[in-house]
């Protein structure tokens, strides 16, 4: 009886998906619905809570901290666009060149920072970005005659400091994405362009960039989505996210504080919901741009 079941092609797929579906329903689907429920309630601590309708949503849109956080997330996102597309793109093109010897070694080295956890990366950068003139980055700047900067103290430099960490950690991964795209480009196109008298920069601009456009869009949307999830760096760089003058307050930090410092579970859920909507919109744009909807 039981043995026969294992041979049934109609029933076995359900047996196969059951464990996943069961856990998915309890720990993914239910929390999403529960988040919607909580966001309509005023909950203090873990028990009870009064239905308040859309009050939390009205509150969030009149909360100046919410806008500060949204702007900070956006600044960070824009910054990663400026660094994490051109730098990996140029490095990938150079790595792809036939004059580059030992490319696998460089590729591996540039990938290593992605393995370092954000907590550790942030802790190390707290040392590197130390504001005194003995700080490591400040010492290096000193060689070029630039005075010491108060990296993690000056509110104008807090977001750039986080962008620096993101750039360090993620260049190697984006290089891999771009290299995958570059191997798909036919070498004959470059040769034909050279014969027609196109120089290196013209070939880069008129051949490489247009053909890599899908990958550039993909990397850009990863930056877009990642930009609104920023949490760990801020949490570690400023002892639980108390950045100078809230200059690096992010949506995720605000959510964490609302929930676990002030125990406003309803309001925290509202922030989570708004975050999810922002990220969902960007994800849909990504899928649209990368042609996901046409494929199936």
């Amino acid at each position: 009886m039981f043995k026969k079941l294992f041979y049934n092609k109609k029933i076995m797929p359900w047996v196969f998906i059951f464990p996943f579906l069961f856990i998915f329903a309890i720990f993914k689907a239910v929390p999403i619905i529960y988040a919607a429920f909580l966001s309509l309630h005023e909950v203090n601590g873990l028990v009870g809570g009064d239905f308040v309708g859309l009050k939390n949503y009205i509150r969030i849109f009149s909360d100046s901290e919410f806008y500060t956080a949204l702007i900070n997330n956006t600044k960070y996102m824009v910054g990663t666009m400026v660094t994490l597309i051109p730098i990996p793109l140029v490095l990938a093109v150079l790595l792809d060149s036939k004059f580059c010897k030992g490319k696998n070694i460089y590729k591996a080295i540039l990938f290593i920072p992605a393995l370092v956890s954000l907590v550790i990366a942030s802790a190390v950068f707290r040392i590197l970005l130390h504001e005194g003139d003995t700080g490591i980055l400040n010492s290096i700047l000193g060689w070029f005659g630039i005075g010491p900067q108060k990296w993690l103290v000056n509110p104008l430099l807090t977001i750039p400091s986080i962008i620096l960490i993101a750039t360090w950690r993620w260049t190697g991964v984006n290089i891999i994405y771009f290299l995958t795209g570059l191997t798909g480009i036919n070498q004959e196109m470059y040769e034909a362009a050279s014969i027609d008298g196109a120089n290196v920069f013209q070939r880069f601009y008129y051949i490489t960039i247009p053909l890599l456009k899908p990958i550039i869009v993909f990397v850009a949307t990863l930056n877009l989505i990642g930009g609104y999830k920023l949490f760990t760096e801020v949490y570690v760089l400023w002892d639980g996210g108390n950045s100078p003058g809230q200059s690096a307050l992010t949506l995720a930090i605000k959510l964490y504080r609302a929930a676990f410092s002030y125990f406003k579970m309803g309001y925290a859920s509202t922030i989570g919901f708004v975050m999810a909507i922002i990220i969902l919109i960007f994800s849909l744009i990504q899928l649209k741009l990368t042609g996901f909807f046409e494929e199936e």
């Binding site: 998915f24 720990f27 993914k28 689907a29 239910v30 929390p31 999403i32 529960y34 988040a35 909580l38 873990l46 609104y228 999830k229 949490f231 949506l251 995720a252 959510l255 964490y256 929930a259 579970m265 925290a268 859920s269 989570g272 919901f273 975050m275 999810a276 990220i279 969902l280 994800s283 849909l284």
Partner: peptide, 17 residues
């Protein structure tokens, strides 16, 4: 579709549950 939602959204409900 659920994959697109950030973990942050589920933090509070999961904690309470």
């Amino acid at each position: 579709a659920a994959q697109m939602l950030p973990i942050h959204m589920q933090l509070v409900p999961l904690f309470v549950m």
